[in-house]
């Protein structure tokens, strides 16, 4: 644990540089808000016709009933999609994706996963992502794109039938949508845990430095 928590000495010693530019911070928290609305309302919708032998507890659903859950889901989707699209465009246009997330090499990933599991992965320089971070952040962007595409194909299976074909058929798109949600929830747990273990990374996402 002690190797993961880093003191503030490094930062206060030299002039603080901006780690997370303002557009990243705004879009990050907008996405977090929209994503939570989507997940909680999505669980409400799932409960109307569960894919598996379980339902989500009512306390963790949004909307009160199926109709309410759908209203929330189809409202929050605009926030999620507009913000997500802007993030993708900005990420590519500013070169942030290329700079922060690439390259991802198998040896690098293996090395850093081993280091992380033995609590030896350091976060000395917050502006450089290690290979575990790169893999998770690039991966979650792909999952984000997939969950929107599978969602759109469930919303408009006739108008966007070519999109449905991409997933196979309508029921398969439903499963893809579900598993993407599961992946995002798993990411959320790890992401929040790690942010709490390295508080200055959380601070950087709030005030930028």
């Amino acid at each position: 644990m002690s190797s993961l928590t880093v003191t503030d000495e490094h930062i206060s010693a030299k002039p603080a540089k901006v780690i997370q530019p303002v557009w990243v911070r705004v879009m990050h928290w907008t996405n977090a808000f929209a994503m939570i609305l989507m997940i909680l309302s999505g669980w409400q919708i799932y409960n109307a016709s569960p894919l598996f032998n379980f339902s989500f507890p009512r306390e963790y659903t949004l909307g009160g009933w199926l109709g309410g859950g759908l209203l929330w889901h189809f409202a929050a989707m605009w926030l999620l999609m507009v913000n997500g699209l802007a993030y993708l465009i900005a990420g590519f246009a500013t070169g942030r994706f290329a700079k922060k997330l690439l390259p991802i090499t198998p040896t690098g990933v293996l090395h850093d996963v081993r280091a992380a599991l033995t609590f030896k992965l350091s976060h000395d320089d917050l502006s450089v992502y290690n290979y575990v971070q790169r893999t998770l952040y690039a991966g979650i962007i792909v999952v984000g794109v997939l969950i929107v595409l599978s969602g759109l194909s469930m919303w408009k299976p006739v108008q966007l039938h070519w999109l449905v074909t991409l997933f196979g058929d309508y029921p398969t798109a439903r499963y893809v949508h579900f598993f993407c949600m599961a992946a995002i929830c798993a990411f959320l747990v790890i992401h929040v845990l790690l942010a709490l273990l390295v508080p200055k990374s959380l601070r950087a996402m709030i005030i930028g430095r």
Partner: peptide, 22 residues
């Protein structure tokens, strides 16, 4: 369409904003 336990809780709690309130 709800199982019994849910039914009781639903009636007691009303169809509130649920998770956000929680």
């Amino acid at each position: 369409t709800m199982p019994d336990v849910t039914r009781r809780r639903f009636i007691a709690g009303g169809a509130s904003l649920g998770a956000l309130t929680l």
